[in-house]
Computed example of a mutant assay.
Amino acid sequence: MFAFTAKKIKNALALGLIAMGTFTSVSSFAATSTKECKILVMGDSLSAAYGLAKEQGWVTLMETRLDQKFPHCAVVNASVSGETTAGGKTRLPALLKQHKPTHMILELGANDGLRGLSLDTMKDNLTNMLVAARRNETQAVLIGMMIPSNYGPAYARRFSDTFADVARKQKVPLVPFMLDGFALDPTAFQADGIHPNAGAQPKILENIWPTFSATLK
Rank of each mutant, 00 (worst) to 15 (best):
A94F: 00
A110C: 09
T162P: 06
E107R: 12
G87N: 08
F212L: 04
D180Y: 01
K97C: 12
S81A: 12
R135T: 03
W58P: 01
P148V: 08
N111Y: 02
I18L: 13
S213H: 14
V131K: 05
A74D: 08
D192W: 14
G116V: 03
K169N: 11
Q139M: 07
Q56T: 12
D165L: 06
N125P: 04
K38R: 13
T22F: 03
Q201P: 01
A78R: 07
S79R: 14
I194Y: 10
N128V: 02
L126C: 05
L13S: 11
S33G: 05
K38S: 08
T64W: 13
S45V: 00
V41I: 15
K35W: 09
G57L: 00
I9M: 09
Y151P: 06
T90F: 00
Q98M: 14
I105T: 10
Q68V: 15
P176C: 02
L114G: 03
L95F: 11
K69N: 11
V172I: 08
G43K: 07
V26Q: 07
L66V: 11
M62N: 10
D180L: 00
P101D: 12
C37M: 08
L96S: 15
D180T: 07
A31L: 08
K171W: 14
M129I: 00
A188F: 08
K89I: 05
H103R: 10
T64M: 15
D120Y: 10
K171P: 08
S27V: 11
H103F: 04
S25G: 14
S79V: 13
A191M: 13
I204P: 02
A6R: 02
I204T: 03
T162W: 01
L108E: 03
G16M: 10
T215K: 13
T22K: 11
A94I: 07
A78S: 07
D120E: 13
S45L: 00
G144H: 06
T127D: 00
L179Q: 06
T121V: 07
S81H: 09
V131C: 01
P196L: 04
A30T: 06
A3V: 15
D124L: 06
N77A: 10
G51H: 04
D44P: 03
T127S: 01
A3P: 13
A214W: 12
Y155C: 05
D67R: 15
K7R: 10
L114W: 04
T85F: 05
D180R: 04
I18C: 14
K8E: 06
L119C: 05
V175Q: 00
P101W: 10
H72N: 14
G144I: 09
L17W: 01
C37A: 12
N77F: 10
M146P: 13
L117C: 06
S160L: 06
A6V: 01
T187W: 10
V75K: 09
D44F: 01
G57W: 00
P202F: 04
K38F: 01
D192F: 15
A78F: 00
A48T: 04
F70D: 11
N207A: 02
A133M: 06
P101F: 12
M20I: 14
Q56L: 11
M178Q: 04
L46A: 06
K7G: 15
E55Q: 11
K35N: 08
T187I: 02
M104Y: 13
L61N: 01
T121P: 07
I208K: 05
V76M: 13
L142S: 03
V175D: 01
A19N: 03
N128S: 11
T32M: 00
L184V: 03
K100L: 02
